[in-house]
Write a protein that binds this DNA or RNA. Structure first.
Lengths: 335, 335
DNA sequence: CTGAAAGCGCTAACAA
DNA sequence: TTGTTAGCGCTTTCAG
């Protein structure tokens, strides 16, 4: 490694041709004499020559072929399934568009030196609004995922969390439940807030009361779900159904239920949010709300790319619809 | 966005100075007249000029300041905690070294076009050995994480999985267990194989028999753990202790146990592998083997960087030691 | 303190 | 089919 950077000129000299020719074989221009191609390729591998991508880009006039993916340090947003699915989508999108994906794990304080990213995708914004602002102000193509941004001129693509949780709660209501509790997600998160809002909206619309002891502020963690479940079950008048703002939490509640001999869904209905495949394999299949995470990631790349390349001039605002996935963890109330 | 790429020349013209001077203020060279600095800076922000990083790099002769992180498409390796911790470490390492982190999610078939990565970190190798080979052959600085590579001249940094599972099994043995079962990880994975090996080694060394019905080949998923647990519990002579090759699986086994009224650790001891913080919050704190994932990621970046910069000439082989974390999920056998 | 000019390593017309 | 000659946008001597 670290050979005294041999360049195209060296190769040309060694092969006894011009650098142009070397460049041609590098770029697989077909009009080069077979024999010369071989000679050049020989020289290239002999000298272990690797073209300098920086120079190539400059010469080709390529502006930027990388998008940055910015994720906040390590709050709840990075809870496994959500982030992983998103990343898969983004990764796939980049692969398709032949874009490099640059990863920025940040605590929100640094100014986010984006070395050669031509666009930025923010995985939600929690504490890093300033970063988004700066980037936007600098004219950097930006897109925020899963956060409907109102006070900033920036594109976003999000899932309709209000609608999703509304669907979840309404499903419970339609099943006949009257005593419905919820564990919320992290209320620092817009998703957390919105999912709670949709939940409330559904209950209100169906004239169902939601006392405060039926609401537990969680943070997407199994730990908080466990606390919630324990509290709910110890209530004088426990709920017959629980909406958890994430599948992870829902699964934990299923666990707590079974540990306490409470049958799912006979004694209690539980519905989650995410469509985490793990929900398929618990003791009961988890009924849940599916959000198109992969698609969202893929779309995000596409949109940013269009902004980068100027095909898209204005702001893009997309809100994707979630789906209700019915499995076995919900039933009509027995009582 | 997408203004017709204004360049340093435009700024120079507008500010009525030479491009050299503009370059100077860009690079904060102190010997520039205050007044001129202001004028230039004015022009810069007026025109929303952003220097082309590609050109800067070329001119400065900077080779590569990015490392690529390659992760296989989507096998078990990407099970949440493992990958997330690793990535945190790598992200942190890059931040420290002011390196960009380029993300490659690959299915192992593509030739891995590494646009401007100066080094590559492979998150294990499962189906992408050819990619590693190619990269190594091309003289690209490479490092493989968590896979002790024998048949290839490549650096690696790994955790001693054999030792870890040996510790786990021995701990169980020392507690007095004789009937010890295990759910393995994905046996396509070296970690899966090694953890099984360590387990067997410990039992053998202590002259404890391990019948085949005590071994369930899992894949790190909760699903497979559930299957395993159900099978173990239905055995005529069920085990008194179980070693799971991941905390996720261990936690699922705890769940299955409790669902069946089997008390942990009174009736059954369960030990995991990972030190996933989620293990802290279940019904019982999970005893487990901690692997220094974050450290490993950080180290990986450091090592690759040293190879990239030529400070490190030879191959680097590091094997990190795991730790036993004792919590509450294991006890002496009651029977 | 400022500007002219020579590259960085490579690509892309344009000739030959 | 191959080579000559300009640049790409910026940094960096080296004069002035």
């Amino acid at each position: 490694m670290v050979e005294k950077k041999i360049s195209i000129t060296d190769v040309a000299r060694k092969a006894g041709v011009s650098i142009t020719t070397v460049s041609r074989v590098l770029n697989k221009v077909p009009t080069v004499n077979k024999e010369i191609v071989q000679r050049v390729e020989g020289a290239i591998s002999d000298m272990k020559f690797k073209p300098n991508p920086t120079a190539q880009r400059l010469a080709k006039g390529i502006q930027n072929t990388a998008v940055g993916f910015v994720i906040p340090g390590y709050p709840g947003i990075f809870h496994s399934f959500y982030a992983v699915e998103l990343m898969r989508g983004i990764g796939h999108g980049c692969e398709t568009l032949r874009l490099d994906l640059i990863f920025h794990i940040t605590d929100g304080s640094n100014p986010l030196r984006s070395n050669f990213a031509g666009g930025l995708i923010f995985a939600d914004i929690i504490e890093n609004l300033p970063q988004v602002q700066t980037a936007v102000a600098e004219g950097m193509p930006c897109l925020v995922i899963n956060h409907i941004v109102k006070d900033l001129q920036v594109s976003y693509i999000a899932v309709d969390n209000v609608k999703g949780s509304f669907m979840a709660a309404e499903y419970l209501v339609n099943l006949g439940h009257k005593r419905i509790a919820t564990v919320t997600g992290n209320m620092q998160t817009q998703a957390g807030i919105d999912r709670f809002e949709g939940f409330q909206k559904a209950l209100k619309q169906h004239n169902i009361d939601c006392p405060t002891e039926y609401v537990h502020k969680g943070d997407y963690s199994r730990r908080s779900a466990r606390q919630a479940a324990e509290r709910f079950f110890s209530l004088e008048n426990p709920p017959t159904a629980i909406f958890a703002a994430s599948d992870d939490m829902a699964m934990e509640i299923v666990s707590v239920s079974m540990e306490n001999g409470i049958k799912v869904p006979e004694d209690i209905s539980i519905i989650g949010f995410d469509d985490n495949p793990a929900g398929l394999f618990g003791p009961v299949g988890l009924t849940t709300i599916k959000q198109p995470l992969f698609t969202m990631g893929e779309e995000a790349v596409r949109v940013v790319y269009e902004i980068m390349t100027g095909k898209q001039k204005g702001l893009v605002h997309k809100v994707l619809a979630p789906d209700l996935i019915v499995r076995e963890s919900c039933a009509q109330p027995s009582s």
